[in-house]
Design a protein around this nucleic acid. Structure first.
Length: 599
RNA sequence: GGGCGCGUAGCCUAGCCUGGAUAGGGCACCGGGUUCCUAACCCGGCGGUCGAGGGUUCAAAUCCCUCCGCGCCCGCCA
């Protein structure tokens, strides 16, 4: 982590805070003593908190030396020598142009363990913020089951919401449902006809594929690709669907329309639920048309100096002044027939979000990037000064190349992946646990499967493309969700066998002197900064990285240092393990992975 | 063509915002480890022109420019 990621200043939340303050104060003092003017802000800005073999915190003296007209190596040596004795700082040494500062192991252990153990589930959380936020994510059209590509949105969004909450921000999550567009109309169009009247090609695509009792999203979504293909060839059917779209807009949807969307949605949400993803609010696009909000948007847009009225009555906005690509500056917001477009309704939706929340965050696939910029321009056009924050992620592609596509048949369904993952997890559980009841095997397998999938998707930075490979998605080893879960279970097991399942956890920090203990304490102490960084940058993949680092160091400690079989250190080591279990559990919560006490 | 994003060992990936000391992990591969708290683990080894070139700087994976490759978008679709 770079210095900026960790700018702890609050000792109530971050065990590093007092030590950092002490380091800065000591360096200011030392600088003055050696005749160099350095402000606390300058020092804090240049500190390297990654440390290294020489210490926990490093101060590169290059810039300060240049400003003072001295040699970097010489200045570093002078600063180190002039650093005052400071409680909590064990050593200050110079190496090359760097001043290296090492925290006192016992003091850091004391500060960290007491903070973790006293805050418990709140360890990692920041101070409560008065700024509220809305995270809109997933928002997949209710036209069929989730494929893995869409699930990336849900996992990033859900994890971001969790990270923001932990950082102190009150968050509301929303799933924006398109029940207005062509896609939704296609579903209603086909299911409003009796099977016998379905076009031959559509019936053929579905017949024999269905399985009894299949989920509603699967069932209702089956004809979708065939319908899509059919419409390309049949203008009269296309007209029927267009008429449906118009009916939706004018407030006269067919009876079954909303019910069908809801039915499919229920199936989709059930799948997300297995990944621990739930929404605070479902927002239906059609509500903004019905409420008149869209009309109001159109009225305001019509008054814009950039408004252009076409001959056929369509309304467009010239967004050239907003720096959009020159081919995209003519944005139509109302069709010639008077109906609105997706972007228009989205303006109404965003105005509503801004009326309720301070921060509006949208998780979008990269194909929506231009839409996002258009949205920003149009929000300005209607007089909204605030802008959403966009979290843009790249597509998940298939090894053969290209995006996952329902129509192209390259989609891997979430349910399909879950099923396979559960089967493999079950096998792994049975391999090592013969003592478990069937219900426990099933429960663990489900949690491991969901954990593997969530972790596999969230571990990569959103701006990186991901190629879906079964063997990677189903990995339970190394940098994986199950590895973190396993480490949690291992810590739980130690505490259980030690008869130390619950507090209090008394400890003597001086006894935690083994190098692997010192290293473990340092990873624990990093957690609050890691949470704050993820929330601030929306780079939630860093939480996955942190969880792995902590699990990794715990396992090293576990192998190198006996806990229950130790002597005077036993009690203190149990406290350390309890702190690890707590922090690992908190990290698992952030990632939406289940805490497993045993596996 | 224009805009945006990505390019780090055989494969996957962190670090890039805010430039600092031998570029962290994982998979695969090779060699070890279980009379001991869960081996979904641990220890050691192998493997790097950080896409290419130029620039800025005491210092560049990181900042700037050019180029190459890949992806996405450029609808009165969503």
């Amino acid at each position: 982590m770079s210095a900026s990621q960790e700018t702890p200043s609050d000792s109530a939340h971050d065990p590093w805070a007092p030590l950092l303050d002490a380091v800065v104060a000591g360096l200011v003092h030392a600088a003055t003593a050696v005749g160099v003017g350095l402000t606390a802000a300058t020092i804090r800005d240049q500190l390297n908190l990654e440390g290294g073999a020489e210490g926990d915190i490093a101060f590169p003296a290059f810039r300060a030396a240049q400003a003072a007209g001295r040699k970097p190596d010489e200045l570093a040596g002078a600063l180190a020598a002039a650093f005052p004795p400071t409680p909590g700082i064990a050593s200050v040494t110079a190496r090359g142009a760097y001043v290296n500062l090492r925290a006192d192991n016992a003091e850091l252990a004391r500060a960290t363990l007491s903070l973790v153990l006293s805050r418990g589930g709140a360890y990692g959380e920041g101070p409560k913020s008065s700024v509220s936020a809305c995270v809109e994510h997933t928002s997949a059209n209710p036209t069929g089951p989730f494929h893995i590509g869409r699930v990336r949105n849900a996992i990033i969004g859900d994890t971001l919401a969790r990270a923001l909450r932990a950082s102190g921000v009150p968050v509301t999550t929303q799933y924006y449902l398109d029940d207005m567009g062509r896609q939704a109309a296609m579903i209603t169009w086909i299911w409003s006809k009796p099977r016998a009247e379905w076009p031959e090609s559509i019936r053929r695509a579905v017949d024999g594929e269905e399985t009894p009792g299949e989920k509603p999203d699967r069932h209702r979504g089956r004809p979708y690709p065939a319908v899509s293909a059919y419409l390309k060839e049949n203008p009269e059917a296309r007209d029927e669907v267009a008429a449906l779209v118009q009916a939706l807009e004018t407030g006269h949807p067919p009876e079954r329309h909303r019910a069908l969307a809801q039915e499919i949605l229920d199936g989709m949400l059930a799948s997300l639920g297995r990944l621990g993803i739930f929404f605070d609010e479902l927002v239906w696009e059609s509500d903004f048309v019905r409420s008149g909000a869209v009309d109001q948007v159109l009225e305001r847009l019509g008054k814009s100096p950039h408004a252009v009225r076409e001959e056929n009555g369509a309304l467009a906005i010239d967004t050239a002044s907003y720096g959009l690509p020159k081919e995209s500056t003519h944005v139509v917001v109302q069709r010639g027939n008077g109906t609105s477009l997706y972007v228009t309704r989205d303006i109404a939706y965003h105005l509503e979000k801004f009326s309720r929340f301070d921060r509006v965050i949208d998780v979008l696939g990269q194909d929506h990037r231009l839409h996002a910029r258009t949205l920003e321009a149009l929000l300005a056009e209607v007089g909204e000064s605030r802008r959403p924050s966009f979290v843009i992620y790249q597509d998940i592609t298939v090894p053969e190349g290209g995006r996952m596509s329902t129509r192209g048949g390259s989609a891997v369904w979430l349910d399909q992946l879950l099923e396979e993952a559960v089967a493999r997890a079950r096998k792994e559980v049975l391999l090592r646990r013969e003592d478990l009841a069937e219900a426990d095997v099933g429960r663990i397998a489900e949690a491991v499967a969901a954990g593997a999938i969530r972790y596999h998707i969230v571990r990569v930075a959103p701006e990186k493309p991901v190629v879906f490979r079964w063997e990677d998605a189903l990995s339970f080893e190394g940098r994986s969700g199950p590895f973190v879960q396993y480490s949690y279970a291992r810590a739980s097991s130690v505490l259980r066998k030690g008869g130390a399942d619950a507090p209090p956890y008394p400890f003597d920090p001086a006894l935690l002197s083994h190098p692997d203990e010192a290293a473990l304490v340092r990873v624990l102490a990093r957690f609050p900064a890691a949470v704050a960084y993820a929330a601030r940058t929306a780079h939630v993949h860093t939480i996955a990285g942190y969880a792995h680092d902590l699990a990794d160091q715990f396992n090293r400690f576990y192998h190198a240092v006996p806990v229950l079989n130790s002597g005077v250190e036993r009690e203190s080591r149990i406290a350390l393990v309890a702190a690890v279990r707590q922090t690992l559990g908190n990290a698992l919560d952030l990632l939406g992975l289940e805490r497993l006490a045993t596996m």
